[in-house]
Amino acid sequence: MIKKIIPAVLMLVFVVGGVFAADMLRPSPVSTSHEGGDHGGSGKGDHADDNGKGDDDHGGDYDAKQTAGNYYFNFSRQFVVPVMQSGRVQALVILDLNLEMEQGDADGMFSMEPKFRDALMRELLALSNEGYFTGQLTDPERYDEIQKALLRAARTVKDEIISVLILDFARQEQ
Rank of each mutant, 00 (worst) to 15 (best):
E113P: 09
M121T: 10
M112Q: 14
F116I: 10
S86M: 14
S111K: 08
V15F: 09
E35K: 13
V80D: 10
D96R: 04
V15H: 11
D139L: 10
D50H: 09
L137W: 03
T134W: 07
M84T: 11
D63N: 14
M101Q: 02
R26K: 09
E141M: 06
D46P: 01
T156K: 10
K44E: 03
Y71R: 08
F73H: 06
L95E: 03
A22Y: 09
R88M: 01
A64H: 00
D96A: 13
D55F: 11
I162K: 13
F73W: 09
G104C: 12
L127S: 07
G36S: 10
L127D: 06
V157I: 02
L165P: 03
S128K: 08
L97V: 02
K44Y: 03
E141Y: 14
R77Y: 02
E173V: 14
Q78L: 13
V9L: 04
E145C: 07
K158A: 00
V80E: 14
K53R: 09
A21C: 11
I162V: 13
G69W: 05
D23N: 13
A126R: 05
L10D: 07
M24W: 01
D63L: 07
V81Q: 01
S33D: 04
L127Y: 06
A126Y: 02
I6R: 12
A154W: 00
K44C: 14
S31Q: 14
Q90W: 09
N98L: 06
R155E: 11
L150E: 06
E160I: 14
M24I: 04
Y143K: 13
G59R: 04
V16A: 10
A119K: 05
D144Y: 11
D56N: 12
I166R: 08
A149H: 02
A154G: 02
S33F: 13
A170E: 15
R122S: 11
T32P: 09
H58P: 11
T138S: 08
G45Q: 03
I5M: 00
P27E: 05
K115Y: 07
Q66A: 10
A48R: 06
L99R: 09
A48H: 01
I2H: 03
D61Y: 03
D118A: 13
R152L: 07
